[in-house]
Simulated assay, not measured.
Amino acid sequence: MDLILIISILLLTGIIAGFFAGLLGIGGGFLMVPVQYMILVSTGMDPTVAIRVAFGTSLAVVFPVSCAAAFAHHTRGGIDWGAAVPIGCAGLIGGFAGGTLASHLPADILKPLFGVMIIIAAIRMLTGTPVCRGEKDSCLFSWTLLGAIIGILSGLLGMGGGILLVPILLLFFNLPIHRAVGTSSACILFFSTGGILAYIVHGLRVADLGAGYLGYIDLLQWIILTGTMIPLSRLGVGAAHRLPAERLKRVFAGMMVIIGIVMIGILP
């Protein structure tokens, strides 16, 4: 694939993923991973290595993008730090564990299952009602367990984790949609950190990658996607706080269904 075409595809991907990262409180990996994977395979890279590079690079992009989105949400009072800290700390450890698993296991076995899970979560978010209505302090253990589980999935599949975290915060912790989106952005900072460390550590052992890579992180893709997504994520944050809560929930659920279908049927 021609370098100019690759750069153009990555720029377009960054624009779309960045806007939705800010709008929906997710990392943007839902779009970056399949695009990066297809580009890498088209250049002749082994599919197993390519999917790991796509996961690692996606998380490396997610971190600075989520920093920008979380700061924008924080300035609007949209983050519940009492929930974000325990979820995020557990998720950091989980992210490292997930990245380690992905470096040793055929991750594509889990992609269809993850796609089904996302679709079920989307349906549940549209039709369900909040479950945990008590004081938030009583949910501390649940927050920690939630962070560990989603952190593992984040590291394993190269996604920020917000695609699952936002509906869970809505349904089981009774957070309003705008606050759930903002809190998710803060948690993704922790999730992605653990995963990034794992993909760097284990990728450094792969001699075939050569120059232009930091472990399983493709530095060219990282520069292009990060530079595009950060300003677009701030636009997405502004749009999120202007949209009515129910409309934002429907947009989020629609994106989840699309992502689930992609994860089930498109990535080999």
Rank of each mutant, 00 (worst) to 15 (best):
A69Y: 02
A69K: 00
A70V: 03
H73R: 09
H74S: 13
R76F: 08
G78S: 12
G78Y: 04
I79V: 15
I79H: 05
D80L: 10
V85R: 08
V85K: 02
P86K: 10
G88V: 05
G88K: 02
G88P: 01
G91F: 04
F96W: 09
F96E: 02
G99S: 07
G99C: 06
S103P: 06
H104W: 10
L105D: 00
P106H: 04
P106D: 00
D108A: 11
L110F: 14
K111I: 02
L113Y: 14
M117I: 08
I118R: 01
A121L: 10
A121P: 01
I123M: 09
I123Y: 01
I123C: 00
R124L: 13
R124M: 10
M125V: 04
M125L: 06
T127L: 07
G128R: 05
T129F: 02
R133A: 05
G134M: 07
E135L: 03
K136S: 06
D137K: 13
D137I: 07
S138V: 08
L140I: 14
L140A: 09
L140S: 07
S142A: 13
W143N: 07
W143A: 11
T144D: 01
G147K: 03
A148I: 10
A148N: 00
I149Y: 07
I150P: 05
G151C: 07
L153K: 13
S154E: 07
L156W: 12
L157E: 04
L157A: 06
G158Y: 13
G162M: 06
L165Q: 14
V166C: 11
V166H: 09
V166L: 14
